[in-house]
């Protein structure tokens, strides 16, 4: 699915990712944990192709294609999805038109027919229900005036509707209470079908109680310093990140 070899990347003048290696096979769920400033969010931005995130060296292969050669929208159309930690508000574009464009762009890329308005609406209603968002939210501006929890659920709703091959969840748990966390986790788990892969980026172990990973990696100072099974997350929970030899600054706003 995804092979990252010796990835180095920088933001502006600062190198954040310093020699990262990762191999993800179809259907696997990988958790990436680490202290703040380790490069967790940067990894998602680099893989999605965000402007200003420059790859200095290394290779990323996504289902046989060189991911780093592709435009942002091409990566998405190829099946890469990034659920944002802080999704942007776009007041003048309605969720409805945004999601319809997006779903149809993905369908087109997969060689499927575009959905009619009625078909789309049916699908959107079901997805809304699944993540517990009221229907009238479809008419509102993208993320406009949403609470932090609603924004996270909107990201998961998009994941459900877009059906990517690989989904990267960037701190999808931050700022959520237990109920909202469960909604997000259930949404994600409903998409685990043995084929779709996930990278779950999180600071805390708590999300991994609900989304059980196959592998856990600890990211620190731009590279993976330790890998293991779900038990590794429990160790982090018990001892924090202090053993990495650097202070954990705690969750930043």
């Amino acid at each position: 699915m995804l092979t990252i070899k010796d990835l180095h990347a920088r933001v502006e003048e600062k190198t954040i990712i310093k020699g990262l290696n990762l191999e993800i096979k179809p259907g696997e769920v990988h958790a990436i944990m680490g202290p703040n400033g380790a490069g967790k969010s940067t990894l998602g931005y680099v893989l999605s192709g965000r402007d200003g995130y420059e790859v200095e060296q290394g290779e990323v292969n996504f289902n046989g294609a060189n991911l780093l050669d592709m435009e942002v929208e091409e990566r998405a159309q190829a099946g890469l999805f990034l659920a944002f930690q802080y999704p942007v508000e776009i007041p003048g574009v309605s969720n409805m038109e945004f999601m319809k464009e997006s779903v149809n762009a993905m369908r087109k890329a997969r060689g499927e027919d575009e959905l009619s308005s009625a078909e789309f609406l049916k699908m959107a209603k079901e997805a809304c229900k699944q993540v517990n968002l009221p229907l009238d939210f479809l008419k509102r501006g993208v993320n406009e005036g949403f609470s932090g929890g609603e924004k996270k659920r909107n990201e998961i709703m998009q994941l459900i509707m877009l059906k990517p091959k690989l989904a990267i969840l960037d701190e999808s748990d931050s700022g959520l209470d237990v109920d909202a966390l469960q909604v997000v986790a259930n949404g994600v788990n409903s998409q685990r079908d043995g084929e779709r892969s996930f990278i779950v980026v999180t600071h805390y172990q708590r999300l991994l109680d609900f989304i059980e990973p196959d592998y856990v990696h600890i990211l620190a100072q731009g590279k993976i310093v330790k890998s293991g099974g779900p038990e590794l997350a429990k160790e982090v929970e018990a001892s924090g990140y202090a053993w990495l030899g650097q202070a954990d600054e705690g969750e930043k706003a």
């Binding site: 999605s48 965000r50 402007d51 435009e71 942002v72 929208e73 990566r75 998405a76 159309q77 999805f81 990034l82 944002f84 999704p87 942007v88 776009i90 003048g92 574009v93 038109e97 945004f98 464009e101 997006s102 762009a105 993905m106 890329a109 993208v142 998009q158 877009l162």
Partner: peptide
């Protein structure tokens, strides 16, 4: 960037925005 990460072509995304 947000619209592009959802697979929407740049030209279309600019029209929407």
């Amino acid at each position: 960037y947000y619209l592009l990460t959802r697979g929407i072509d740049k030209q279309k995304a600019l029209v929407m925005l």
